[in-house]
Amino acid sequence: MSAPNGRDARAAPGPERATTPVPAGPAALAWRRRRVALAAFARSFARHRAGLVGLAALLAISALALTAPLFVDEAGLSITRAPGDPYEPPSRRYPLGTDNFGRSVLDLVVWGARVSLTVGFLATFVSVALGTVIGVAAGHFASSGGLAGRVVSTVLMRITDWFLVLPTLVLAVALAAVLPRGVGTIILAIGLTVWPPTARLVRAQTLAVEARPYVERARALGGGHAHVMAWHVLPNVMPVVLAQTTLLVATSIIAESTLSFLGMGDPATVSWGGILEAARNAGAISAGIWWYMIPPGLAIAVVALSFTLCGRAVESVLNPRLGEAR
């Protein structure tokens, strides 16, 4: 695996460099470099059609989720004040029909996007933070820190491998079962179980970064472990983390729906997995009420697919060796 990093993009002199005047100080120079790198990244990303489609779908769905209160009446989502009759087939008033309580399925799905996306993002944040810290520490102490460092690194990787092998769902469900019900529990259960691949990836990248001369320079100048990890290693593993984050959101959203479907969710909140659980418990599956069960599942699939497409595009922009093949 060649080391994906942002340095190549930064080193490539863009047309901007020739035309703009020499900046005042190092900070301005750094900012201009970042701008150039970002522009180069955006240009390469735009070449991946699938990634663009995914990004567009995500922006549209996020906008819909954010503005949902404008056109969905939250009161209509309560079981007792449902506006329609049970199991109305799709009509002009209810484009996706109604559920067993008479709530509009379209409203439920739109509203469910809020919880599903929030849980997806927060769980990803937890697991990426955990995976990055463990991965950077394991990678850093493997190459510096002497015998004690190598022991720490080995122990961290053994723990990672242990979590990697265990069935994710079983662990997440067990966590969700023993903690109090709620959205926070779901976020924690997913975040604490899906981090190992990130840790492995970040560790590999950290090892590659640690071998570079500027890390040696920082160390020679007296930089401690914390300084080297935070200022020299972390910024250079961030591109890998970014790609992994995008892919993990898809995993987390599917995980959220799965946990909700198994009844681990908070019954008071509407999420896509929760809608499907309700549909199954209400017997909508055997009764063939397709409009109750198809939209939420399709929503999960579309969002997960969009994140995956985006993540793969980001991945191949950062790692051109993969790019040719996709």
């Binding site: 479907f261 499907l276 009764a287 069960m293 699939a301 997960a304 697919l305």
Partner: peptide
């Protein structure tokens, strides 16, 4: 193959199962 696999991977397992039941097993439609 990659597109099909990615799409199927994005689909929640349990939902695919429910879908197959509704379409192929429930005898409605």
């Amino acid at each position: 193959h990659t597109a099909v696999a990615l799409f199927l991977w994005s689909v929640p397992t349990f939902w695919l199962g429910l879908l197959l039941i509704v379409v192929l097993a429930s005898g409605r439609g």
